[in-house]
Computed example of a mutant assay.
Amino acid sequence: MKTIKRSRLISRRKEKKLTQEEFSNIIGCSRSHYACIELGTKDPGFKLTEKIISELGIDVKDWR
């Protein structure tokens, strides 16, 4: 995942005042898995990507 996308994930989550634990519960994955996504060591699958961008209000065309 590109750095700009990772920084957008982190900033959007923090704007919503959510911890990684809270956000991972909302999107249905473990905190450790979501932390790896934010760190860039794992990429989310298609369905998880849909959940992340939906919950954070990121336009899909900006995700690419």
Results as ranks from 00 to 15, higher is better:
S30T: 15
S32M: 07
T49E: 14
K14T: 12
L56V: 09
A35V: 04
T3G: 06
K42M: 04
S54L: 13
C36P: 00
L9W: 08
P44Y: 09
E15L: 08
T41R: 11
A35K: 11
S32P: 00
T19D: 04
I52N: 04
S24Q: 09
R13T: 10
E21T: 13
T3L: 15
T19K: 03
S32R: 10
K16S: 08
T3P: 02
R64E: 13
I4K: 13
P44H: 11
E55V: 03
L39H: 05
C36A: 14
V60G: 00
G40Q: 05
D62T: 14
K61R: 14
I52M: 08
T19E: 04
E15A: 08
R64Y: 14
L56E: 10
S24G: 06
L39I: 00
R12Q: 12
V60H: 07
K51N: 14
G57C: 09
R12N: 07
T49F: 02
S54V: 02
I10G: 00
E38Q: 08
I37L: 07
H33R: 07
C36R: 12
Y34E: 09
I27W: 01
E50P: 00
K51F: 06
R8F: 01
I26T: 02
L56A: 10
G40T: 09
D62F: 11
T49P: 02
T19Y: 02
E50Y: 10
E21H: 08
S7C: 03
I53A: 03
K42I: 02
I4E: 15
K42V: 07
F23P: 01
R12F: 09
R31A: 13
E15R: 06
G28T: 13
R8Q: 13
E38L: 05
L18G: 03
I4Y: 12
K14C: 03
M1L: 12
G45V: 06
K16T: 04
K2W: 01
E21A: 11
R31P: 01
R13H: 11
S11E: 14
S30R: 02
G28C: 11
S30D: 12
R6F: 04
E38H: 08
I26N: 03
L48R: 09
C29H: 04
L39S: 10
C29A: 07
I37S: 05
K16W: 04
W63N: 06
C29L: 08
